[in-house]
């Protein structure tokens, strides 16, 4: 009861007024075997905004991200307790098929991971397995649309049938974003999407995030404080498996309430 009250409070005071809540996690505990990785994390992520998760390595921010699309289910011995609502529906129920959930929640990984297939087949992969396209032309339409949204169309339009692994790192990362967009998700999770990229490619991805947030709820894990400040509207600081502080990015970076947050963003710890 107490917990629910806190969450309501958090909603009331920390969210920008215009943003409805998309993801609402309540009392999340994650265990890898005997070891507990997350302790009672409660956080709300607004729709049509970027929420950044920051914190030192091993603080549990990626673990939390992977709870949202139940990727932790693929890890043997991992247990997730708590309630994760997407549009007020608990997605952490055993009875809910993670396969269905993951078609609503796209994910982009740290290292670009295009399949060893052509650029076209990479993007067409999701629509094909979910049966979105009834004809070849419709499929081509989806691929083109997704690549355009990911800002990659101009660069690859004339070589759609060449292998996706032949692209540069930054292009590969935009390709997998296009691949995620192609299944028309509601949420896009990004796990340090720029850590393997150079500054120019990073700038492009950040620009892209800014455009994508007009349509999607984006949650990003990042090690770069500057990136969190640039792209996110809300920031949450994790430390040792606990959520220390969450609020608008501006508030977290200019006026953190917790000394640990203060130390981390000013570079005194981490």
């Amino acid at each position: 009861m107490q917990m629910t009250k806190n969450v309501t409070l958090a909603r009331a005071e920390a969210l920008p007024d215009h943003a409805p809540i998309k993801i609402n996690a309540m009392g999340i505990n994650v265990f890898y075997g005997e070891k507990q990785a997350l302790f009672d994390v409660s956080i709300a992520c607004p729709d049509r905004a970027v929420t950044a998760l920051i914190g030192p390595s091993g603080c549990g921010k990626s673990t939390f991200l992977r709870c949202i699309n139940r990727m932790n289910d693929t890890i043997v011995g991992c247990r997730v307790d708590g309630r994760i609502e997407i549009d007020n529906e608990d997605v952490n129920l055993k009875s809910l098929d993670p396969v269905v959930l993951r078609s609503r929640v796209g994910m982009v990984f740290q290292k670009p991971n295009p399949f060893p297939k052509s650029i076209f087949d990479n993007v067409a992969y999701g629509p094909k397995i979910h049966g979105f396209a009834s004809s070849k032309s419709e499929l081509e339409g989806i691929v083109e649309h997704s690549l355009k949204k990911a800002g990659l169309w101009g660069e690859v339009a004339d070589r759609l049938h060449q292998p996706g692994t032949g692209l540069s790192g930054g292009q590969q990362q935009r390709l997998v974003i296009a691949r995620a967009i192609a299944v028309n998700p509601e949420v896009i999770l990004m796990d340090e999407p720029c850590s393997a990229l150079d500054p120019i490619a990073t700038a492009k991805i950040e620009e892209l995030m800014d455009e994508l947030r007009e349509q999607y709820c984006i949650v990003i894990v990042t090690h770069s404080m500057a990136q969190a400040a640039r792209v996110s509207q809300r920031t949450a600081f994790f430390h040792l498996g606990r959520l220390v502080e969450a609020g608008t990015t501006e508030a977290i970076f200019t006026n953190p309430t917790d000394p640990r947050t203060q130390d981390y963003i000013t570079g005194r710890s981490g």
């Binding site: 993951r102 991971n113 999701g126």
Partner: peptide, 9 residues
């Protein structure tokens, strides 16, 4: 594998 599973495959 993660990439494919995360697509809902």
């Amino acid at each position: 594998r993660d990439g494919s599973l995360a697509m809902g495959a």
